[in-house]
Design a binder for these strands. Structure first.
Length: 209
DNA sequence: TGCCAGGCCCTCTTTAGGGCCTT
């Protein structure tokens, strides 16, 4: 696995908190290598209980679909293979990381990559955007989409396109291309007012006079 | 059936509160 591969993932879940018994019901992911989307992963998963009507309406995933789906354990084991040692990205990553950690813990699986958040990066790169919801940012950046929202693979694909668009915009605006993943993670947590300064420092290091 | 969370970040801040985001 190349060091610069990134897996952008999105979970649909039965609720907000794995600590209160919520489970993943669908996972979608896109693998990016050298800035190109090269592979994808998608599966519904049966959480072992019925999901409520709000989640069914919100996602379009119903209990009949889940009763025919493989169990979370089987799907997450396959997903571990897909992830390998890639770094990870999600929109509002703290949410998806909680579910990834909880589902992996149930099958004693783990991952070695670092997590970055497209929402935190967008708050710094697109400070003037109306808000930083995934759908808003996709429209704001004129990213092509098929109109499907709140399904795991569609949201992962949009997040992947947004991630690449942000890296491209950083390059165009600050002349900082091929930013290492760890640096982007640092950038997404730096105070908003310090973003330009941090990028200028990086550019200086990357292109010493 | 209905309920539940938590990290980040701003400000009327730091001995705190509340909005944003995710399902």
């Amino acid at each position: 696995m190349l060091a610069n591969s990134v897996v952008v993932l999105d979970f649909e879940t039965s609720g907000m908190s794995p600590d209160y018994g919520d489970r993943a019901i669908e996972i979608g992911a896109v693998k990016i290598v050298d800035g190109i989307m090269v592979d994808q992963f998608q599966s519904l998963m049966n959480p072992g209980f019925r999901i409520n009507s709000f989640i069914q309406d919100f996602t379009g995933i119903d209990n009949n679909m889940l009763s025919a789906a493989p169990g979370c354990e089987e799907v997450m084991a396959q997903f571990q293979e897909f992830v390998g040692d890639a770094n990870l990205v999600a929109h509002n990553a703290s949410f998806d990381k909680r579910f990834l950690d909880a589902e992996f813990a149930k099958i004693r699986a783990s991952y070695s990559g670092q997590f970055a958040c497209s929402m935190l990066l967008a708050r710094r790169i697109y400070q003037e955007a109306p808000n930083h919801k995934l759908g808003t940012l996709v429209s704001y950046r004129n990213i092509e989409h098929d109109g499907v929202f709140h399904r795991a693979l569609a949201d992962a694909q949009m997040t992947a396109k947004l991630w690449l668009a942000m890296l491209e915009d950083i390059g165009d605006q600050y002349q900082c291309w091929d930013l290492p993943f760890q640096f982007v993670g640092k950038l997404s947590k730096t105070p908003k007012k310090a973003v330009a300064k941090l990028l200028a420092q990086y550019q200086e290091k990357a292109n010493p006079i």
